[in-house]
């Protein structure tokens, strides 16, 4: 028995958003009587953290604390339209729509504050803690809860804003095939180190080094989590997960349950080192690109290349099972 070590590399360029019949997301923001700012969306947070990121976008643009932002994604029947949470589009599309809505709401908020303080709205600024104050005279200030009360019960104004981000449909140029299918592209590469047991065919992923260029990292902790959690999923696709024998043989799709769907557990994770590079995208919210789906991609070919480097077996069908490794080794010996 020999444990063979190998190292492989793969890179990925990944589009943010898509372009079928046009790709829009809308946001509506309004202030409550108490100075909370409700961001109404139809965009669904699948657990990836969309609510956190768009709350950051709203708070930053309005100039108020995040605690005063309420994200409402309650109902896709009644909320402003969103194409959906897919294609790594949420942060980019929804973030842009929220920023646009927040700018409009901010203008009203400052105008209401200006009328209360009897100053010009152009001379006001937000301090980020919940106050609107006069530039150069910070003692002249009013809290957003008082602004909201004045708007509702005194001035008769709705502090609200509308936002939409639309990636328009782009048709290919017939002569060249040229088109503009996405908004920006994120880039990444992964280096994987594996160990192949030439007797059992078992592949162990020892280490992974990930580098991602994703525009601006709006929430660096969530970006790091997405990179390494996604890489785990890549390892899972590469050497564990399979829908066999239930798909396509005997079922419309999918494995029946978790008992029959193999995934790596906590003892089977590689040591990971990840680096984030920030090159802000001109059309992204504060420069962000999408980093959803791409994180599972590069690890798979990187592991395939590492297996080839370790033992000379070139595998092209996932998952890279012990059987497929052993058959590959047999074929090499026979050759």
């Amino acid at each position: 028995m020999t444990l063979l070590r190998g190292r492989g590399y793969a890179s990925v360029n990944y589009p943010t958003g898509m372009n079928l019949g046009g790709d829009p997301s809308q946001a509506i923001i309004h202030a409550t009587t108490m100075g909370g700012f409700v961001v109404t969306l139809s965009s669904v947070d699948l657990g990836q953290g969309l609510k956190t990121v768009v709350a950051q976008c709203a708070a930053e643009t309005l100039g108020i604390p995040m605690e005063n932002v309420i994200i409402d994604t309650a109902d896709t029947d009644t909320g402003p339209h969103c194409m959906g949470t897919f294609a790594s589009r949420g942060t980019h599309r929804v973030g842009n729509a929220v920023i646009m809505a927040a700018r409009e709401a901010r203008e009203v908020m400052l105008q209401v504050a200006a009328d209360e303080l009897e100053v010009d709205a152009g001379d006001l600024e937000t301090d980020g803690t919940g106050f609107v104050r006069l530039k150069g005279s910070p003692a002249t200030k009013i809290h957003i809860s008082d602004i909201a009360l004045a708007a509702h019960f005194k001035q008769g104004k709705s502090i609200s804003g509308r936002g939409i981000f639309l990636k328009e449909r782009s048709y290919p140029v017939p002569e060249t095939g040229e088109m503009d299918p996405d908004s920006c592209q994120a880039h990444a590469c992964t280096v994987a180190e594996v160990e192949v047991d030439d007797e059992t065919g078992i592949v162990t992923v020892l280490r992974m080094y990930n580098t991602y260029e994703i525009g601006r990292a709006l929430n660096p902790a969530m970006v790091a989590q997405q990179v390494e959690g996604g890489a785990w999923m890549g390892v899972s696709h590469a050497i564990f997960e399979s829908t066999e024998p239930y798909y396509p043989a005997s079922r419309a799709h999918g494995p029946i349950d978790f008992c029959e769907y193999l995934m790596p557990g906590p003892a089977e994770i590689p040591v990971q080192t990840s680096v984030i590079l920030e090159r802000p995208a001109s059309n992204g919210p504060f420069g962000a690109k999408g980093i959803g789906e791409m994180t599972a991609n590069a690890p798979i070919p990187a592991i395939a290349n590492a297996i080839f480097d370790a033992c000379g077996v070139r595998l092209t069908t996932m998952p890279f099972t012990p059987e497929s490794v052993l058959r590959g080794l047999d074929a090499l010996r026979a050759a």
Binding site: G229, G230, M233, G265, P266
Partner: peptide
């Protein structure tokens, strides 16, 4: 760390990759 891995081996996480949990 091995004992932690064993203790949570019956808990599936699909997001984090487990490392931060351990």
């Amino acid at each position: 760390a091995d004992e932690v891995n064993e203790a949570i081996s019956g808990n599936v996480c699909r997001c984090t990759g487990y490392a931060p949990i351990v």
